[in-house]
Design a binder for these strands. Structure first.
Lengths: 362, 362
DNA sequence: TTGTACGCGTTATCAT
DNA sequence: ATGATAACGCGTACAA
């Protein structure tokens, strides 16, 4: 196994020499180009195998138009939301001979610029920008370079002066909020309140609007939206506010649509502490479908899934399309991908049990 | 801004032409080599700036010995434990002109081989292998290639026949278990039980051994280790087993060292439900220091932190050392990095409040 | 002080 | 059917 060869990896020249043919012939044999005698092809192949030859992609890329590499720039560190997105991107791009550079800009414009420069110097065929929030960010500064860019789980303010808009793939938070609320209304709940995160998040605004739209479409009771932190503590506090001793008994909500699973869990625990049953007295729906919370909450939590891995996959596919199509071909701008309601036991709906994907570990 | 230049990026030839010098002179000017007249250097620099010139790293690497790239292969998908490790690696490697290829082997040997081939074809200078469990795995098959490899949060069975052992960076789970247990004993607890995960995990074995070592060192009461799943549900069940109505009142544990924060949370909730106070009646310590759980548990959870980001950083640094040192220089084998006990309120110790790092989001 | 020419590893074009 | 050669973009020894 351990050849006495030098550390240098074998080149196609070595292969040609080993097979007793010229360099050009070896190249053709390995790439199936031109007209070669079958025996020659076989001989070259054998030599290549014997030497464990791998074509040097650096050299290949040097005179091809593409490098078969792409870059992912994560705005913030590898967070809980970037993760599935990146996984999806890698899933699509990592196959098909394409390698993925991963960069962490850590919310620092200087670091971002550094990484962009590095990626361009490496002649990546495209770049995906990822964030931990869906809110708008400044566009990537590519200088004069013409490299397709796709934004995933983040977006750029659409500048009408720009000739070509970069695609921004985002979860349809409006639809998610609408779907969750409508689900509760369909189950017969009439007074649905919404407990969510900080209002400065665009996602919070959109989910709230979806919630309102569903309510008014059903002609349901007066809406009620509470904003707070993305924490269980806020969920507990909000539930206490709504159902605490000072509340009027007859106007109490019979359902709560929460802006995150963490909030939903806090809410659920506070309801239990107040002697209220979930879902009999109050139905609860969360957001994010984070298994660690949906499964640990009692009863298990119905939640909106943003399909982030799929979003990542679509971002990757979109980038591939853009790369193949050449510059200026992509119809860009924001694109909202549908969310999916995962029904469990906290909403009181009949639930068809299926094996939950086992993603736990230590 | 939008030049009428072709999509092709400017080469050093273009720069030379623009500056009115020869190709070689331009190269020297940009790299500070040779003896150039200051004015010439300045002229070339200006031309390069004007054209937004970036040297093509593919071409550079072609006749340098290195590519200034490294690969990370994650055994399983981007999980909760790979994440901070990868972040640390990227932190060290992503600076200093080095770009990082990210590969997801998804627990599939075929995919792993594919990615290794791709990385070698791209002439990476080194590879870091990451896992979601610290248990041993087969070594990466590099064929005849001589590329340094570092394992982080995973390890290879050390083969005595192998000339050079690859370094494996792992958390010191024995020390972590010992530290947590000793902490509880120091606080005056005498009957410490250990509620952990599945015994097939090496980490579970090591933590349990650390626990036992601390107990026997202190001459404490008979050890008690319970194994179950990595879930809150198991934590609740274990607490019920220990403290349920059928238990003898005088031999009950006064402290519980849990194998994960999720288990610890389940334990804590079950204790509350049984009317036991934490930490007054029973002290609780978790493992992983996962903020989402440590902060949401009431009282906040004292927990063992494996310092995974630091582990990742050290893995990256180690790889750089190996790359610089040339082949066969690294003293390899497993290397255990210390864990750190983060004291909060569930163990009953006085805790010095400091601003917790805000890593929450939606 | 500056320009020329070669090599890095590969593919593609043109002769043979 | 095969071999020689240019080209990709860059750095550098060497010549001028």
């Amino acid at each position: 196994m351990n050849q006495n060869r030098p550390a240098r990896l074998p080149t196609i020249k070595d292969v040609a020499h080993e097979a007793g043919v010229s360099l050009g012939t070896a190249s053709k044999a390995l790439n199936g180009q031109g007209q070669l005698r079958p025996g020659t092809v076989e001989r070259v192949r054998a030599a290549a195998d014997r030497l464990h030859f791998r074509p040097n992609r650096l050299a290949q890329s040097l005179h091809r138009a593409n490098s078969l590499t792409v870059g992912i720039i994560s705005t913030d560190s590898f967070g809980r939301f970037s993760m599935p997105v990146m996984e999806g991107i890698e899933d699509v791009l990592g196959s098909a001979e394409r390698s993925v550079f991963m960069c962490n800009a850590a919310d620092d414009p200087a670091r971002e610029k550094m990484h962009v420069d590095a990626l361009l110097a490496r002649r990546v065929d495209g770049i995906v920008v990822t964030g931990r929030r869906t809110d708008a960010r400044p566009a990537l500064n590519l200088g004069a370079a013409r490299v397709p860019v796709v934004y995933a789980y983040t977006q750029v303010g659409h500048d009408p002066g720009q000739t070509v808009q970069a695609p921004c793939l985002l979860p349809d938070d409006f639809g998610g909020g609408e779907q969750a609320t409508r689900h509760l209304l369909t189950l017969g709940r009439r007074r649905v309140a919404h407990i969510s995160g900080p209002p400065k998040f665009e996602a919070v605004q959109l989910r709230a609007r979806g919630y309102l739209a569903a309510l008014s479409a059903a002609g349901a009771a007066a809406p009620l939206v509470l904003h707070g932190a993305w924490s269980e503590a806020w969920g507990r506090e909000a539930a206490a506010q709504l159902f605490g001793p000072a509340s009027a008994t007859d106007a109490l909500p019979d359902a709560l649509f929460c802006g995150s699973d963490q909030i939903a869990r806090g809410v659920t625990e506070a309801l239990h502490a107040l002697g209220l049953r979930v879902p009999q007295d109050v139905a609860v729906v969360g957001y994010d479908n984070w298994d660690v919370f949906t499964e640990a909450t009692r009863p298990t939590l119905t939640s909106v899934d943003m399909n982030l891995r799929d979003l990542g996959r679509q971002a990757g596919q979109r980038l591939l399309d853009l790369i193949d199509a050449g510059p200026g071909q992509g119809l860009g701008g924001p694109l909202r991908l549908p969310c999916r309601l995962v029904v469990r036991h906290s909403c009181g709906a009949p639930v068809n049990e299926e094996a939950p994907d086992p993603r736990s570990s230590a």
